[in-house]
């Protein structure tokens, strides 16, 4: 099984590209890949309920949604307002995932 760490740094404020990238993540999950989509910087705005509908498909099909706790606090978003299934992570979690030999990383 292919494994991916996909990193979205722009989120909805950056325009439609962020939605397409979340759609890419959802497609990889549907194709059987092990996917963690990590939202960081302004990307965390995508994890607010209703902001990025593509995340529903990602989570429903077994993908993981990681949200950077630092970026979330910086942007004053309450974790209670995130889509159910989102997991708050620290950069050390990302580093560990990145260092797993089988994981491919894509930054957007």
């Amino acid at each position: 099984m292919h494994a991916y760490l996909l990193i979205e740094s722009g989120g909805p404020p950056a325009g439609p590209g962020s939605h397409r990238f979340a759609g890419d993540a959802a497609q990889l999950v549907r194709e059987g890949a092990d996917v963690a989509l990590f939202l960081v910087e302004n990307g965390v705005a995508g994890a607010v309920r209703g902001a990025m509908p593509e995340l529903d498909a990602l989570l429903a099909d077994g993908g993981e949604l990681w949200v950077d706790a630092f970026s979330l606090r910086q942007r004053a978003v309450d974790a209670e307002d995130l889509v159910p299934g989102a997991r708050l992570v620290e950069m050390r979690d990302v580093a560990r995932k990145l260092l797993s030999p089988a994981v491919r990383v894509v930054w957007h």
């Binding site: 740094s9 910087e41 302004n42 910086q74 950069m91 990302v94 580093a95």
Partner: peptide, 14 residues
């Protein structure tokens, strides 16, 4: 953007 901050945070974490 906060790209540089993320790069430094990630470098430190690694």
């Amino acid at each position: 953007t906060d790209l540089v901050t993320s790069a430094l945070r990630l470098a430190q974490a690694l």
